[in-house]
Every structure is written in structure tokens, then in C-alpha cells.
């Protein structure tokens, strides 16, 4: 195995594109090193992108934020502006692993690991965030939900990697929230999860919504009917029930050591309801 730490995006692309064997990008390493330890992945080349300018910075852009691909959970959690605007995105990201893992893990890494249960992903999907991808043919912006295509598989081509994630500007009276279910209070992989992103009108009626669910399908899913269940309501009981039903209906989970189909299908609706109420309150809505 070779270890390289290029100082420019172009050089990183060149290294990744020219490697004949297996190449892996290293940002936080909290998935990659575990996979290497178990022998699941044996890369011929590891490209550490942390020396590249911009990879570790958060920059305001067009009313939103551009977050470098190597910004850790701990770093983003300390960014008061991002926390204020996108609390659901940050709380999802900050739920990954332990305090120690937060010192290293990245949103781009969580996204590219392509686990259906990645905690950073549902909120990014609900936020309508985009990933900037650099590659041999230059840069392109891709919506978050286009990145993973199945468990452990992503749509990026050879030589491509994510350089940043962009959180867009948002209207007044908007906020988001993320909840996951785990058997313990910390340190587990989500059994089911839900992110809700809301914008309210002046009277507290939901005017825009995006709802995403995790760990209940091969990839994180944006649930359009769930959003429709909320729009035009003030999150009354019927709206919440419809939201839960839409999320459960969108679920297509598996039985595994972490949960059953029946359990995941039910709990994802419960989580969506609870997350919606939190997002609503954060957006200034009063019940």
C-alpha cells in the first residue's frame, strides 16, 4: 500500500485516476481504517486529502455554507452559524460514533461509505444539500441522494472524490431535526432514522418540507408523500399520523442483527413524527 497526501485537488484526482489497483480516499478514516483492519478492504493506494486547501474549512457562500470534505464532526459542531441554521444537519453528523470518532469523521466520508444507516445523510438529503465532486473531467455538483446507489456503493467514477458539501441558504422560519433509534444511548448504528426539514409561514403553517428516512432501505430515501403530509398543516395529530404512515410505507427494510423489518417499519414513523415536532419548534412554530 502507498500513502499519499497531495496538496491540490488536481494532484489528488491524478493519483486516484492513475492508480491501477484499489484506491481509497482518506479524510477522517473512521470507516476506512476499520475496513482495512478487518481485511474487508485492502487498498493499494490511500490518498489523504487533508492537506488540500479548503478541505478543512467552512465558508459562507450564497447565504449558505460550503463545508470542506475533511471537516470533522467536532469542528462543525463548534461552528455556531451552521448550528444555528442547520441544527438537524449538525445533530445528525454529531451522532456518528464517539467523541473520539467525532474528532475525525466527516460528512463526505459518511456519505461515501454508503451505509443505509449513515447518520449524517438523511439530514443532508432533507436539507437539499449538494456535494461538489472533483474528477478527471473537472468539477460537478451532485445532489446528496444521487451519491449512494446501494449499500457500500456510490455513483462516483474512477478518479472522482467529494471536495465539499454545500448547505443552501434558507428562508426565515426554517429549521430541521434528525432522530435515530439505537438500542443504547450512544455508540450504535441507527436501526431506523428520520430527518425533517421545514419552512413555516408567518402563522406557523408548514409551507415547505423535506423528509428523509435512513436504515430502512438500501439507501437513504427522500419521502415525498411524507413532506406532502406536513405541508399546509400545523402538525396536527392527523398530519403527524399521515407523516408516520408515509414514512412507514416508504420503508423497505431488512431483518438483521440490529432490527427486524416489522420493528424498523414501525419505528421510522415514530421517529419522523418526533423529528417533525422538534423541527417545527425550532422553526418558531408553536403547538
Amino acid at each position: 500500500m502507498r500513502y499519499e497526501k497531495p496538496e491540490s485537488t488536481a494532484e489528488a484526482v491524478r493519483l486516484l485516476a492513475n492508480e491501477a489497483g484499489l484506491a481509497r480516499v482518506l479524510a477522517g478514516g473512521t470507516d476506512l481504517l476499520v475496513q482495512m483492519k478487518s481485511g474487508m478492504v485492502e487498498p493499494d493506494l490511500v490518498v489523504d486529502i487533508k492537506q488540500i486547501a479548503g478541505m478543512r474549512t467552512v465558508t459562507p457562500e450564497a447565504g449558505g455554507f460550503r463545508i470542506g470534505a475533511a471537516v470533522s464532526g467536532a469542528e462543525l459542531g463548534e461552528n455556531a452559524e451552521v448550528v444555528a441554521q442547520w441544527p438537524g444537519v449538525v445533530e445528525g453528523f454529531n451522532l456518528i460514533g464517539s467523541t473520539q470518532v467525532q474528532g475525525r469523521c466527516t460528512m463526505a466520508g459518511n456519505l461515501c461509505n454508503a451505509s443505509p444507516a449513515g447518520d449524517a445523510v438523511p439530514s443532508l438529503v432533507a436539507a437539499n444539500a449538494t456535494a461538489r465532486v472533483a474528477g478527471p473531467n473537472g468539477e460537478r455538483d451532485v445532489t446528496i441522494e444521487q451519491i449512494p446507489v446501494g449499500p457500500g456503493r456510490i455513483s462516483l467514477a474512477k478518479g472522482e472524490f467529494i471536495t465539499s458539501i454545500f448547505l443552501p441558504a434558507r428562508p426565515a422560519r426554517s429549521s430541521d431535526a434528525y432522530l435515530r433509534f439505537i438500542p443504547r444511548t450512544e455508540m450504535d448504528i441507527a436501526v431506523a432514522s428520520a430527518a425533517v426539514n421545514l419552512t413555516l409561514g408567518e402563522d406557523g403553517t408548514v409551507t415547505a418540507a423535506r423528509v428523509a428516512v435512513g436504515a430502512v432501505a438500501p439507501t437513504v430515501r427522500l419521502v415525498e408523500p411524507a413532506a406532502q403530509a406536513l405541508i399546509g398543516t400545523k402538525l396536527d395529530e392527523d398530519a403527524l399520523a399521515a407523516l408516520a404512515a408515509a414514512c412507514s410505507a416508504a420503508a423497505n427494510p431488512i431483518n438483521d442483527k440490529r432490527g427486524t423489518i416489522e420493528y424498523r417499519t414501525h419505528v421510522v414513523g415514530v421517529l419522523a413524527k418526533r423529528a417533525a415536532l422538534i423541527a417545527y419548534e425550532r422553526a418558531g412554530g408553536r403547538k
Binding site: 438500542p183 443504547r184 455508540m187 448504528i189 442483527k257
Partner: peptide
């Protein structure tokens, strides 16, 4: 509450690590 050896149909242990063999953590 949470600790258990989980065997698959193939008779292999499915959770040989502290991630899915869930001992209590401080916040539990």
C-alpha cells in the same frame, strides 16, 4: 437489555465486536 451472541443461519457469529455486542456505555 442488550448483550447477546447473535448467530446467523450459517452458524456464524454475526456480532463479534463492541459495535454490535452492546455492553453498557457510561450514558446508558
Amino acid at each position: 437489555l442488550n448483550e447477546e451472541y447473535i448467530y446467523g443461519e450459517d452458524g456464524r457469529l454475526q456480532n463479534p465486536g463492541f459495535l454490535d455486542y452492546r455492553v453498557p456505555v457510561a450514558s446508558d
